[in-house]
Design a protein around this nucleic acid. Structure first.
Lengths: 336, 336
DNA sequence: AGCTGGCACTTGCCCACGCCGAGTGCCAAT
DNA sequence: ATTGGCACTCGGCGTGGGCAAGTGCCAGCT
């Protein structure tokens, strides 16, 4: 019995492998041609119909080969797929990527592009998550007579800035002073927890400075709010076009989903992979209708954030998982 | 004679219009069904063969309708196409876009996405060009014991930042002082013209401060260099997939070109449209082989920069030109 | 001259038909 | 439990004829 089960998984693996590479339903005969299974075609057929009863594979029509179902891919990922070490050039690409990177944003931007290139799928990276967004420093720069630049730096190393129009005529020292006060009040706080201390600050200020202070405080809250908002970086969306043949239905709704980003946000919030661990969602396991032909391979990185690739459920899971995991680990390590 | 020419152009326009909307070669009969030309089918046929002799349209095979050639599209754009005012919702979308925008980068990011959405093509925006990149202000922020944030603000309103590791132990005042010196030396200068003044600055500094000054100066030059490098923002690359049917050949090389961005850079450097003016490049007018089935509608904005859409040469030029022009003008106006 | 209606000719597209081959399920034998 | 054999199924593909849309040309009209 154990033997039979093991062989059935082996056959499932072979089917997935062949189907992914040939894009055609695979039959017992052609399976034997490409794999050393050590059994006859009839045996393979028996196992196949057994696999079909379990709902792991499925026949488009009588007298055709089998293709894996979502459940089949799931079983493949859980029980058959192994992580393959990356090739030397791939590893080198990741390392040079990490080495000469400026700030975190740029690093993630390169990461997502590289991931798209290596996997030939759509790649996405979630920005460092909200929970670690403590404020480290605030800077105010007067860039013109009535234009102020507000810069916000968070513990995670991310830098956000925004220019705001201000009342003209405030001396430069006013902003130096305001900056010091702001820093005293907000540094170390969560970006989501600013309203109260800022209100206090505005009230503590001398009366004639009230308007100037308020406008900066408001701009600051707005900046912090956009900061808290999770952002997603995407790359390689055009790879969908490359693999359009892998989608049996129309790809338009899928493209719309990518454009929207809303569904992707939910996707990320549903992920719970720890840093370096991989999580796979296949077809109907994904909530959204438009993603029913797709699969997502994600991994955690840094402190609770995620990155992922998205492709047709008929994708090379072994390569995908390996690449995503490697990238997540490298990036995590780089972010200390 | 003048009459004949005018009618021929009218017929060319009708052919382009029909072909763009139906995607099928258009014949004399169906042309009459959809347009009020006031002449008979035979006359249209005569004009058509005349247009064909001039190389403006072309027959895929005998006994088929005609399709415009690149030259035909060119004539259409030059002599037939008119700018159509945008619809109210479109204009509103652009305005709300501009209103609540933070910094220039964010503004351009939204612009490029909106442009992709409105035209259903690939949209691209060139960053404010190098030539106007005078430095307005430099800011140094000590964010941790041995980590310094260098912020560079240029006249065009763009903000770039980069964190650099520095020797620990410099007091905060050192950086305040250094910042003031830097600003005195570099503000108003071109970002490409920094090496000399910075070398001077380093040499003027007291001996014990030399290393600390040098490392900041170097980081600053590096930052200014990446600043000078033209960057391109892309959006809607997946729209290529949507209009894949509009490309007779394979779209892969086209996708590769978009991924590369190098060809796009050259594309932009070849553009010379003044702010608010539109420039169209069609098919073989574009240098790159991969773009021979594509067309680019670009416009100048701001001080010498450009934005554009890219789609199949069989695109709706009237809508494209109108949208691109409107966006370029709105953005130019917003950037003062 | 230029425009028009008529007409004969061309040719790609669509569809119906039939063959072929890959694949299946089942069964008797080992 | 496994295997070789066998009859059956059915989608894909190549073939061929009819159809519709389109063309070029010509003679006649304004």
């Amino acid at each position: 019995m154990r033997d039979t089960d093991a062989r059935k998984l082996q056959i499932l693996g072979a089917i997935v492998e062949d189907y992914v590479s040939t894009r055609e339903p695979v039959g017992s005969k052609s399976l034997l041609d490409r794999h050393e299974l050590g059994v006859s075609a009839a045996t393979v057929r028996n196992d196949m119909s057994s696999l079909e009863e379990e709902g792991l594979i499925h026949q488009p029509h009588t007298s055709a080969g089998r293709i894996p179902t979502d459940k089949g891919y799931r079983a493949f990922v859980d029980h058959v797929a192994t992580v393959k070490p990356l090739s030397a050039p791939e590893r080198r690409a990741i390392q040079t990527l990490l080495e000469d990177s400026g700030d975190v944003e740029e690093l993630l931007g390169r990461t997502v592009r590289l991931m798209a290139q290596l996997t030939q799928q759509v790649a996405m990276v979630q920005y460092p998550a909200r929970r670690q967004a403590r404020i480290r420093h605030v800077e105010l720069v007067k860039v013109a007579e009535s234009l102020l630049l507000v810069v916000l730096i968070t513990e995670s190393g991310r830098v956000d800035q925004r220019t705001v129009p201000v009342f003209a005529g405030q001396p430069a020292e006013f902003y130096v002073d305001l900056r010091d006060q702001l820093n005293r009040v907000v540094s170390g706080r969560e970006v989501t927890d600013l309203q109260l201390p800022l209100t206090d600050l505005c009230e503590a200020v001398p009366h004639q400075d009230r308007p100037g202070t308020t406008e900066v405080a408001e701009a600051f809250v707005a900046l912090a709010a956009t900061r808290a908002e999770d952002r997603i970086m995407l790359a390689g969306t055009s790879n969908i076009a490359r693999s359009a043949l892998d989608f049996t239905q129309d790809v338009e709704p899928l493209l719309d989903v990518l454009e929207e980003q809303l569904v992707l946000m939910r996707l990320f919030t549903e992920m719970h992979a720890l840093p370096g661990a991989v999580e796979v969602r296949i077809g109907s396991e994904l909530q959204d209708q438009a993603l029913h032909q797709a699969a997502v391979v994600g991994a955690g990185y840094g402190g609770g954030s995620h990155l992922a690739i998205l492709g047709p459920s008929r994708m090379d899971y072994v390569a995908g998982i390996s690449t995503v995991q490697a990238i997540a680990r490298y990036v995590s390590r780089y972010l200390e």
